[in-house]
Amino acid sequence: MNKKENGIFRKITGSREASLLIVLIILLALIELLQPSFLAPQNIAQIFRNNALTMLMALGMLCVMLTAGIDISITSVLAFSGMTIGLLQKYDVIHNTLLLFLIGAAIGAVCGMLNGLIISKGKVAPIICTMGFMYIWRGMAYVISNNAWASAEDVSGFSDFGKSGAPGPYIILAIAYVIFFIVMKWTRFGRRIYAVGSNAEAARISGINVDKTITLVYTIMGLLAGITGVLSVSIYGSAQPNMQYGKEMDVIAACVIGGVAMSGGRGTVVGTFMGALIIAVIAKALPLVGLDSLWQNLVKGIIILVVVILNVVTQRVMDRRALARREM
């Protein structure tokens, strides 16, 4: 039986969130050293704005991964939803911001619900189901746009919502993170998600409706993806069918770095936030050390690998230490 060391050192190194915070602080300190004016409010705001899409969807991915699932259709849902509301504006059907967000959310929720139902009731592996829909929704985005796109002038009124300096995106991010933080820690529904991912059989036996929980989780993911699609149109001022192609991996990476386990049951909102933030800050910091944006992805990939391998290595060292303490 392992006896865990008590004390503050153990608490800090044992908590993923605390380790991430330390890394973040070190990073920010390094940046501050290299370029003192860097950490001005507008730069920080810029970081959030440029990564708002990833950060928002990461919340949904957290819930999905907590159930030991995965969703690679999110950027396709984003594109489908974004393209729809882009077209709605292009053809002057709807221009109301709130309505557009609601429509986008509804589209995303339906897409997500399909995922959830097929995965829970159809017993299909999440990677396969969401892969199929990845093709379907991306294709639909192209089909409805007829290979055209909604340009800046088409969405001009709407893009005011997300233009540089406008509070809209930040408010959405803040509200989303607060809601998820509360739900995941203090509501029964949130804890059910952890239970289902940790031990679905036990959850089922104890009366938790596993199928419903899983369906809801994917619906929420879809909803967020839908909202993100609308947000994307607003922030970038256009809607194209190939929006955010390939970016689903960024969202997954943010969660992984934030300590979310692919096997389910482990991960927090705070951790996810910091995972996304760390990746964002590093990307921003690269030019400061002389690496232009070409190197961004390479460095990002190396960091992800290093983080996960380091995780394994530290766990092994801790296990070995625990063994060494055993009296023989």
Partner: peptide, 27 residues
Amino acid sequence: PTSYAQLSVTENIFMGHEIMKGRMIDW
């Protein structure tokens, strides 16, 4: 043991019948 390995002892005991304060869990 049909338990939740990643969750705390408290949660394992009370999963499904948590003690609530209004609509929030009373940890």
